[in-house]
Amino acid sequence: MNYLITGATGDLGFKTLTYLQNKVESMHLFALARSEKKAAQLKENGINVRLGDYGDLKTLKQAFKGIDTLFFVSGNSDNRQAEHQNVIDAAKTAGVSRIVYTSIANLDQSNSLLAPDHRYTEKAIKDSGITHTFLRNNWYLENEAAVLDAALKNKKLTTTAPNGKVAWALKREYAEAAANALLDATLPEIVELSGKPKSYLDLVDALNHNSSAKITIKYGNDQDFIDSLTSNGLPNEVAQFFLAIQKDIENNELNFHSDQFEKLLGHPLIPLSEAVTEIISF
């Protein structure tokens, strides 16, 4: 059984590879990279690399030859639906027998700004006829790093979502779950990876558990949130994206819980107070 990991030079893909290296013989484990330069680190870690780009169907068809199970990490370009279709078409042409795709939490009921692309991709995978598992990931705690870092510097955490909750978890936890999913073809079509939802006040408590700074919380408006990030060096366009996610959180788009995450992991998720220590410096 040959496995190929897309997004292998990104955090989630690389961490998934790391878990799989302990469970899959090196001759059966492959990674996708867009260029030889990006492939260099993977090769140094003993990974077999195939070159391919989501935007280039021809390279994907070549890269997927001989692959049985494909870990399909969702892309992040402005042309995501077309690029995702390339991945699916290439997988079908190459004879890939199973796709494990990273979707988003509670997609069937989601009104998130991220939902349309994932909804398109899930349908396209279904229509391809390829056996599949959709890992519906909640929000990576690492995505809050800029918010947490600004909170430590400003002695307050600013959010526009006073009542919103999120089932945060670390990327390495999602990666471990993904590795387990790749090796378990008996999983159901949909696996919801959402732990127990927490609020931004819970995040403040986690910060204060690890710091003597006595951080407070500020429920601000849109500009307050943007200012809290840009004053700490984050580019405005990135801050604007996180503001859009704040709106999703305010609308409880990520307030979803499932016991499937811990069942797939085989152990509990890391407590929030411990998890924050992995992504910021106190």
Rank of each mutant, 00 (worst) to 15 (best):
Met1Arg: 08
Ile125Arg: 03
Thr230Gly: 11
Leu207Lys: 03
Leu148Ala: 13
His118Gln: 05
Lys43Glu: 15
Leu234Glu: 06
Leu141Tyr: 08
His209Cys: 06
Ser110Asp: 08
Val204Lys: 01
Phe241Gly: 03
Leu193Asp: 03
Asp248Asn: 13
Lys171Arg: 14
Glu176Gly: 04
Glu189Gly: 07
Asp108Arg: 14
Pro116Val: 07
Ala40Asp: 14
Phe72Cys: 06
Tyr174Glu: 01
Gly233Ala: 13
Asn255Asp: 14
Leu152Glu: 09
Ala150Phe: 05
Leu201His: 07
Leu12Phe: 15
Thr186Gln: 12
Gly46Met: 13
Ala82Thr: 06
Asp202Pro: 00
Gln81Ser: 02
Tyr101Cys: 02
Lys65Trp: 04
Lys43Val: 14
Lys92Phe: 03
Leu170Glu: 11
Glu237Ser: 13
Leu254Gly: 03
Val96Asp: 00
Leu157Lys: 06
Asn251Ser: 15
Thr102Lys: 06
Glu192Thr: 06
Lys153Cys: 07
Asn76Gly: 06
Lys196Phe: 04
Leu269Gly: 10
Asn22Asp: 15
Pro116Lys: 08
Phe282Cys: 11
Glu274Leu: 11
Asp149Ser: 15
Glu83Val: 03
Leu201Gly: 05
Gln41Glu: 14
Pro268Thr: 09
Glu262Lys: 04
Lys37Trp: 03
Ala146Gln: 10
Gly66Thr: 12
Ile125His: 07
His28Cys: 07
Glu173Tyr: 02
Asp108His: 10
Phe241Trp: 05
Ile217Arg: 02
Gly266Lys: 10
Val238Met: 13
His267Thr: 09
Phe134Ala: 10
Ile104Arg: 00
Phe64Ser: 01
Asp89Ala: 14
Leu203Lys: 02
Ile217Trp: 01
Leu229Ile: 09
Ala181Asn: 02
Asp224Thr: 14
Ser199Asn: 14
Glu274Ile: 04
Leu183Ser: 08
Tyr174Cys: 00
Ala146Met: 12
Ala124Thr: 11
His209Glu: 14
Leu60Ser: 12
Ala181Tyr: 04
Tyr54Pro: 00
Glu83His: 11
Gln81Phe: 00
Gln246Val: 06
Asn138Tyr: 03
Tyr200Asp: 14
Ile125Pro: 03
Leu183Lys: 07
Gly220Phe: 09
Leu32Phe: 10
Met27Pro: 05
Ile249Lys: 01
Ala91Cys: 04
Phe261Leu: 07
Glu237Met: 13
Ala63Gly: 01
Gly195Ser: 05
Lys214Thr: 07
Ala244Lys: 15
Phe64Ala: 01
Gly195Lys: 00
Leu234Gly: 01
Phe14Ile: 03
Lys38Val: 02
Thr16Ser: 12
Leu114Thr: 04
Glu262Asn: 05
